[in-house]
Design a protein around this nucleic acid. Sequence first.
RNA 1: GGGGCUGUAGCUCAGUUGGUUAGAGCUGGGGACUCAUAAUCCCUAGGUCGCGGGUUCAAGUCCUGCCAGCCCUACCA
Length: 679
Amino acid sequence: MMQRNILVTSALPYANGPIHLGHLVEYIQTDIWARFQRLRGHRCIYLCADDTHGTAIMIRARNEGRSEEDLIASMSDSHQRDFAGFGIEFDHYGSTNSAENKELCSLFWTALRNAGMVAERTIEQLYDPQAETFLADRFVRGTCPKCGLTDQAGDNCNCGHTYSPTELINPKSTLSGATPVLKNATHLFVELEQLRQFLVQWIQEGDHLQSEVANYLKGHFLNDELRDWDVSRPTPYFGFEIPDAPGNYWYVWFDAPIGYIATTQQWCEANNESLDQWWKNENTEIHHFIGKDITYFHTLFWPGMLKTAGFNLPTKVHIHGFLTINGEKMSKSKGTFIAAETYLKYINPAYLRYFYASKLTPRVEDLDLGLDEFSQKVNTDLVGKVVNLASRVGKFAQETGLAEQYPDDGGLFTEGVKAGDEIAAAYESKDYSKAIRRIMELADAANPFVEHAKPWEMKKDPDRKDELQAVCTVAINLFRQLIIYLKPVIPTLAEQYSQWLNEPITSWDQSKNPLLAAKVGKFNRMLDRLQIEDLEKMIEESKNLDQAIESDPDSSYVDSDQPLNDEPISEEISIEDFSKVDLRVARVISAEHVPEANKLLKLQLSLGGSETRQVFAGIKAAYQPEDLVGRLVIMVANLKPRKMRFGLSEGMVTAAGPGGSEVFILGVDEGALPGQRVH
RNA sequence: GGGGCUGUAGCUCAGUUGGUUAGAGCUGGGGACUCAUAAUCCCUAGGUCGCGGGUUCAAGUCCUGCCAGCCCUACCA
């Protein structure tokens, strides 16, 4: 077999938050693929790094009163600890804030300049004179220029209008509360349109992308002229200063993917390898694993940059969907926003690796972690079928050892060898669910063999010792085959096997020949059943963690300042101003979905007696209609009715939260009656 | 509104280039065994393959229309 040289990466996690189960969908699937390739005898290096630059890091470091370097160093430690906990085995873990990365950024930059692809344009942007920084749209709030609503986001208003932050009336910086001023800033743009022909071809030919991704790009980007990409940010910015444009920094998404190469270089230096061997060599494969949210950075900009700078293009960009838990988006309040660290306290990481593998397909689909399904699958498959096979012959085998010749097993082992090719093909094409399915079919065939042979009867008859040895030899070799096939997913199980039989598993091909004439050590329990209670504890702790997040342990009521930062307090008003708003207690008497609307529920609210109001509320993602009926809510009763596509909305239901599924309706303590005014 | 993906047994999914009575695992029901982590084994139930057209000797599989779900995008709050 020809040995392939394969370089694999996962997306670089951003250094402003801990690793959670959603991230792990990616790192686990990449790790499985890399381990599989190595087991098959290929050269495969798996590289990753922290993504460390940008405004968010700068602001956070500022808020925490420490340097950016300090922040990213501690974040990198915690990321690497979490990854190690899940058995993610990087050949090297770097940082985008490295000397190597800086140098490579210059190299890419020069190439883009030389290719005549960099354009300079002055744009007018809001600037916070107090924080001394330019403000991205999301850091500005103010009054909507179209409808006059106060405290609206920098790029769009609750009234539905979109605009530029420069059009906002009375804008405020969310960083300092200061009034931003308009300031000219020169930005540098990469003219991607120049590479259009190349990109169109690269995207649609050569199987670099899943077909649905190629279609998506074709429909969304390639139909129109490719817009210039703004790759510079004026000072202050945490990142690398652009050498030929002092006072300007490369935008974080410029230097992040270059981090793949910089990390390779660090690895090369440590291992006496040449970078060109990996990144300028047509015999090397480059595989990026990423989530669907960062598709266009990796499928448009990145290939464009690589092409221009003369590096290898990705052989394949593998794109996956998001994680849902029990069919819903991860939610902090429901305790399903589970940090890697929290999971590790309660549950064996091998189980998550197995479960993800059993659900992953080559398509860009969201993966659902149903907690009941999770425990059931782990317990029936891994414990009941796989490990049980070894467990049930463990004691006998310790006495008999393995036979010199492989006994007649009715063709089971040979079947397993045949299946091995299919399983390998499934791993290769990232169809892990298929691989797992085939492996479990083998396990399903193995247990009846032991059952029908009845080794426990042989054990009672000294004359049948050879038969007993034969049964053990078969059972252990079938188990061994399973373990080898599962090794990319659950390497720890292979290690346990190796200790037991004193045989290291280093190659996929070991599955083709049975282990014979070997001593068998004492069998130790390999996996415990997954307890529902542990899952419950994990959820409970995740809920608490959310409430206590980043709080001072000495104080029980230290809440994050994030909400206030996101949305600062509005300008002062008089009591008369407030009294204009007529808030009323109302009872939800009916609630239903609006078929054509994505976010709206249609509510009928009763103000007591025969007074009712029809209100459309953007809470579909957060509430089920049936859960609302009967509840008391607080409504704005004198709001001018608004005609919507779906009907007339005669008021507004009050709620807090950023939106989407994070919406929390205001309630009222017991005793309040519909129609009563809120004073 | 535009684009994409999906829709097969209660649940999770297989169904190869269209070819005989549509499959598996789990769950459910009945039985057996005791080597094994209340594990295992045997038997069994259960499907108008989202719906309607069309192509074909033959369609879960191809074409088309519709419906539903999810995602992206736009609009709407």
